[in-house]
Design a protein around this nucleic acid. Structure first.
Lengths: 211, 211
DNA sequence: AAATGCTTCCATCAAATAATGGAAAAACAT
DNA sequence: ATGTTTTTCCATTATTTGATGGAAGCATTT
């Protein structure tokens, strides 16, 4: 039997799925407390009570958004991993950065919500530590020794540094371009250059030395 | 004549300053919409009306917090720049990362609020683009050609990558340690190592090649 | 001591918000 | 067609939130 969330994802025309999709966007823009159920309902074009009918209380809808975002991001990471598997490190990182950046610029709410969770506390206790992909990425980047059973903390922080660097530029897509005097099109291009420039050398250098 | 904000900063025992200090912390934790004037007032131990008497409406207090945070951060950057001035690039970055990390772990609300502004929209239109220090940092890192009058966008993005990497680890101080299985003390230490490892090689390498 | 001005709190308001009950409407099954 | 279930909306409630008026308290000056 499918969970309600799975059912909603299956038929993207269903009211439940439409509400969830809009919730993604609005919550990604305004955060949990900045989002009202009215904003979401209005955007979908329905009454608030219809929203509550499908998703229960606000917290439940928010948790569904978190789970959904995590699922999307996790799937994308798996897809990218398949493409880069076996290639040399520098190439792997170029392709992964390129693919993830493109993907996230298309769904910026993913980056927004991920960062949001790291930074901000919620007055209601909506925590829900959900699945994290840091370990998988570390493995994909070759940061985990095959002998050791678990990923060392240092390697996980390195992965976080990489992922968050990307998320930050996506989430700053409204704030940064005027600040650095770039048009929107130029921004995405320059972000990719910058990410490659800043992130890759460290890992390539260590591989050259250590291994 | 001193502005109200300056006056409040001058006497940290004044009610206005005490409110502002608490507002720093709470807004840093919960963001604009997640913070209520009641939360701040209760933490200070006063009535809400006293808060409104000193700071007017919520938006005004929030803007004061933003300005104050920016001032603190800007001053710290100036201090650090004085220390590292003239040293070779690699050393400059080691010292700057170390000093900024220590400082921001002491006042995490600065990192929180900086990132918050980049990511999240506010329902009320409280924008206020305040002074940015990206240009100064770019100059301090030697990313600006002396000949060119303004900082190139690419250099500004590089600075943002560096600053945001730091901010992210500070803001994640509650979320990341359990996730990467590190005690609090170990976390700060490993964060510094990771920041040095990820951020420095790229810039050092280019200096070695290009210059 | 009286008067003045500044600060604080109590009581309260108006608006916004999350949430629900119940009637109408729509979809579906028989 | 008729009955049943599901879905949607309208009206309403309780709570929270930002904000204010006015009285009481406190300090300072005269």
């Amino acid at each position: 039997m499918a969970t309600p969330l799975e059912k909603a994802r299956k038929d993207p025309e269903s009211m439940k799925a439409r509400i969830l999709a809009v919730a993604h966007r609005i919550v990604g823009e305004y955060g949990f407390h900045g989002t009202t159920t009215r904003m979401i309902a209005q955007e979908v074009g329905i009454d608030i009570s219809t929203l509550h009918y499908h998703w229960g209380e606000k917290k439940d809808l928010y948790e569904a958004v978190i789970i959904d975002i995590n699922k999307d991001l996790g799937q994308k990471l798996i897809d990218v991993e398949k493409i880069i598997h076996g290639l040399p490190l520098a190439e792997r990182m170029v392709i992964a950065i390129d693919a993830m950046t493109d993907y996230l610029f298309d769904c910026p709410e993913i980056s927004n919500i991920m960062l949001f969770r790291y930074i901000v506390k919620t007055r209601d206790n909506v925590d829900l530590l959900g699945p994290e992909f840091t370990t998988d990425i570390a493995r994909s980047m070759g940061l985990t020794r095959n002998s050791s059973p678990s990923t060392p903390p240092r390697a996980m922080l390195e992965v976080l540094a990489v992922m968050n660097a990307i998320h930050n530029f996506i989430s700053g897509e409204n704030f940064f371009p005027p600040m650095v005097r770039l048009e929107r099109g130029e921004y995405t291009k320059t972000v990719k250059e910058t990410l490659r420039f800043v992130l890759i050398p460290a890992f390539v250098k260590r591989e050259g030395e250590g291994l």
